[in-house]
Amino acid sequence: MENKNNDLIVTHSLVKTYQDNGIPVKAVRGIDLTIQKGEFTAIVGPSGSGKTTFLNIISGLDVPTDGEVWLAGKKISEMSGSELSDFRRDHIGFIFQAYNLIPVLTVEENIEYIMLLQGVDKEERHRRVQKILTEVGLDGYADRLPTKLSGGQQQRVAVARAIVSQPSLILADEPTANLDSQTGVELLDMMRELNKKSGITYVFSTHDRMIMERARRLITLKDGRIDSDETRE
C-alpha cells in the first residue's frame, strides 16, 4: 500500500519507549519517513536524540513500541525473531562503529561469512571476495587476521562484508567515529562511490561535519523527532 516501487524504507508514527528501571525513556517519539532506493542518507543530531534507536528499528535489530516499518516491501515491525534474523541476513548490510569483525576469522572468511549462511558455493564466494577486495582497496589482504590491520582497513573489510551479499540496504551507525578524520572522509568517499556504482541504499549516522557534507540527504533528529530533512544535489 504505502510502498510505491521506489520506496525502500517507510516508517509510520514510529515510537520507541525504553523502560529504564521502570522509568519510561522515550527514545523515538513518532517518526514518519520514507527513504528511497539508492539514497545516500545521513542521520544526524545531538547525543541521545535517537539515531541509534531509529537505525536499529529500521534494520530489524530492535522492535518499535508503536508504529510500522516497511522495508523492501515487507512489514518488518511485525516479524518474529527468526524471520527478522533471516531478513537481516538477506537484505541488510551492517557497518559498526567499532568494525566488529570476527577476530578469529581472516579478512576473506569475515567477508564470505554471510554468503556461507546463504549457502553460496565456494567458487562464487571466492570470486566475489576477490572482486570486493579490489573495490575497497584491500587486494592481497585476504589471509590477514583483523588484528593485523589498521582501523581504516578493518572498516573497509566491514564495508566489504556488508555489501558482498548485495543487500538492499547498508546501515552504518557512526562508521567513522573510531577513525581519524582523514581516514573517515576516505571511507565515506569510498562508500559513496560504491553507492553510485551499485545503487545500494546507504543510511548512516554521524556527528562529524565533514562526513555530513558528503551525504545527499541529511535528516536531523532532535528528542526522538525529525527536526529537519534536507536533500542536496
Binding site: L61, S82, S85, R88, R89, F94, N100, I102, I114, L117
Partner: peptide, 16 residues
C-alpha cells in the same frame, strides 16, 4: 557478548 551480538545482527540464527 558483542561478538555474538554482531553475528546475530548480520543474520546468524540463534541455533547457530
Amino acid at each position: 557478548t558483542r561478538e555474538y551480538g554482531t553475528l546475530r545482527a548480520i543474520g546468524t540464527a540463534p541455533l547457530q
